[in-house]
């Protein structure tokens, strides 16, 4: 245990760092897309009882403690029939389910702001659905949809309790941090923490600069 290479030279940490980045990116992309579509669908058919049902189910994971969701997925996916323990697949599935509420909420709010007529005007002109989404709906609500992607990404980077039961210590950064902390290597765990914070800040600034959307100006806001 002692005699670890310094954090910037430590293979375990770098491996975990890229693992975290990969996981967060994939989770954010999937959860953000599904969440946006849920928001769109629910906003379109607000009176429909199925729409409400979908909306509530999508929100459910938010109400449960992360560790409980993690435990549920652990039991579901690592038994004698399927064993996904310590794979990105399992982490991604768990992450996506957990983070859909962030994306669906922010997207639902923004979709409700778009007047239905904007889309009807395009429908009348025989515009296919995919073009309506990419050329009208998404550009108009660009900032809140990007928030819908950004929130899962940021949260996923620092998530520990959800993933704690689902992988070994060197797999992603937060479990690695926890591992070093418990082993008493506080300098290491603090440094990893710093890496996380700097990463989050860098990404936030990058997205901010590139798209004009940001988390600090609120979800669904301008």
């Amino acid at each position: 245990m002692y005699g670890q290479a310094g954090i910037l030279y430590n293979k375990t940490i770098w491996h975990a760092f890229f693992g975290t980045l990969f996981l967060a990116t994939v989770c954010a992309l999937i959860a953000g897309t599904i969440g946006t579509l849920i928001g769109y669908a629910v906003a379109k058919k607000r009176r429909n009882k199925w729409a409400n049902y979908v909306n509530n189910v999508a929100f459910l994971p938010y109400l449960m403690p992360s560790i409980a969701v993690g435990a549920a997925f652990f039991i579901l996916f690592s038994n004698e029939h399927i064993n996904l323990f310590n794979t990105y697949t399992l982490l991604i599935i768990a992450g996506v389910v957990k983070y859909i509420p962030f994306a669906s909420r922010s997207s639902l709010n923004s979709m409700l702001q778009i007047s239905n007529e904007l889309e009807e005007a395009a429908i009348i002109m025989n515009t296919p659905w995919i073009k309506r989404m990419t050329r009208i709906i998404i550009p108009i609500q660009k900032s809140s949809i990007i928030s819908g992607y950004l929130l899962p990404f940021m949260t996923c980077l620092r998530e520990l309790s959800l993933f704690l039961l689902l992988c070994t210590q060197g797999f992603i950064l937060s479990t690695t941090l926890d591992y070093f902390d418990e082993m008493g290597l506080y300098a290491f765990s603090s440094a990893i923490n710093l890496i996380l914070i700097v990463t989050i800040l860098v990404f936030n600034t990058l997205v901010n600069k590139l798209t004009g959307a940001s988390l600090d100006s609120g979800i669904g806001g301008k």
Partner: peptide, 21 residues
């Protein structure tokens, strides 16, 4: 027949111009 196949023009009360274009 869905609206997009009826080949009609529709002018909305609040114009419904696409603000991003």
């Amino acid at each position: 027949v869905p609206a997009n196949k009826r080949r009609v023009g529709f002018l909305f009360q609040n114009y419904a111009l696409w603000p991003n274009m």
